[in-house]
């Protein structure tokens, strides 16, 4: 029996067998609190905006509302007007409606974020698993593994932002290139996480058991090791999505991201940046708030998932500790 556990698990100590399992279940499927509900509600709203966001402005216009605007529509007679009943969030210096654009912008940001994250998972995780599995065995395999990881080290030591700007600059400014640049930027994150887990998982008794049973490398990796090695990568996905959203906005802010006139949060902040110095705050503030909220929601989601994973890990540790006590 150890005494190093944090408060949440102490209750499972004194309880008898049943209570312990009950405690575990409580940790995993605790009733969603208000914050949790808000976080996943927020994720839902972002997804919804991704689908219908760009249409909201025109819909409002069709419905005869004076406040309705297309996100790329220009009302040059009313440039740089403050928030009003017609333009809820005001207009920017070229007369575009900030409100419609803020609703429309999450689409491109999220599409890029999801695509880049998915790609870096699809490439990074297998690379990491491979490096973790073959490392420390035959010389050639170890060398390959080391090469992969040292390459990831170097990739991470590059100034990521300028690296992305360079990629966009040399290969031309397009959504695809932005996605590729961000995929390369995040590749090492997933490769590292997957490798670290594979290194522990491959030493587990069940891996030996499968090996003794004569399962080949292929089956061993895909049936037994890989599914047990991807947990921390999965848990990192929301954080990376948030990061990519911020990164895309930063690229657009220096003019190396999404091409105008497509509504994109960083680009919108860029358009309003000069007005900020002279006191017209609305063209930059509103997209900035939207950007912050989006990333914050993903950060909360990441935190929530991490907390759940810790509970699982702890519960597993607790159970194996108990088993060893009973066996010993």
């Amino acid at each position: 029996m150890t005494t190093t556990d944090t408060p949440e698990t102490v209750d499972s100590f004194a309880a008898s067998g049943d209570g312990r399992i009950h405690g575990l279940r409580r940790m995993l499927f605790r009733k969603p609190g208000l914050t949790t509900a808000a976080v996943y509600g927020g994720v839902g709203i972002i997804l919804l905006l991704t689908v219908i966001g760009p249409s909201i402005g025109p819909w409002l216009a069709d419905a005869g509302c004076a406040c309705g605007w297309g996100s790329e529509q220009i009302d040059s007679g009313h440039a740089l007007e403050g928030p009003s009943g017609t333009h809820f969030f005001g207009t920017d210096r070229s007369g575009q409606d900030v409100f419609s654009r803020v609703l429309a912008a999450p689409r491109i940001n999220l599409v890029i974020a999801l695509a880049a994250t998915a790609l870096s998972v699809v490439i990074g995780v297998p690379l990491g698993l491979l490096a973790g599995y073959i490392g420390g065995r035959a010389l050639a395999a170890t060398a390959t593994s080391e090469l992969i990881m040292r390459f990831m080290d170097v990739l991470q030591s590059f100034p990521l932002f300028v690296f992305a700007v360079v990629l966009v600059a040399v290969r031309g400014q397009s959504t695809e290139i932005v996605i590729i640049a961000l995929t390369i930027v995040n590749l090492p994150v997933f490769a590292r996480l997957a490798r670290a887990e594979m290194l522990t998982v491959r030493e587990q008794p069940y891996a030996d058991a499968a090996r003794i049973l004569g399962h080949g490398n292929f089956r061993l990796i895909f049936r037994h090791l890989a599914p047990n090695s991807v947990a921390s990568s999965v848990a990192t996905v929301p954080m990376v999505i948030g990061f990519v959203i911020l990164f895309t906005a930063s690229l657009s802010f220096v003019g190396a991201g999404v091409k105008p006139p497509t509504a994109e949060l960083g680009g919108m902040i860029r358009v309003g940046a000069n007005n900020m110095v002279t006191g017209e705050w609305w063209p930059s503030i509103f997209p900035g708030v939207a950007l912050g909220l989006m990333v914050l929601i993903f950060a909360f989601a990441a935190q929530d998932i991490a907390a759940r994973m810790r509970a699982v890990k702890r519960a597993e540790g607790l159970m194996s500790a108990e088993t060893s006590v009973e066996a010993g």
Binding site: M1, T3, F13, A14, A15, S16, R20, E322, V325, E326
Partner: peptide
């Protein structure tokens, strides 16, 4: 195990 001995020490 789990009867509360260690808890008493704590």
């Amino acid at each position: 195990a789990g009867s509360g001995k260690s808890l008493l020490v704590h």
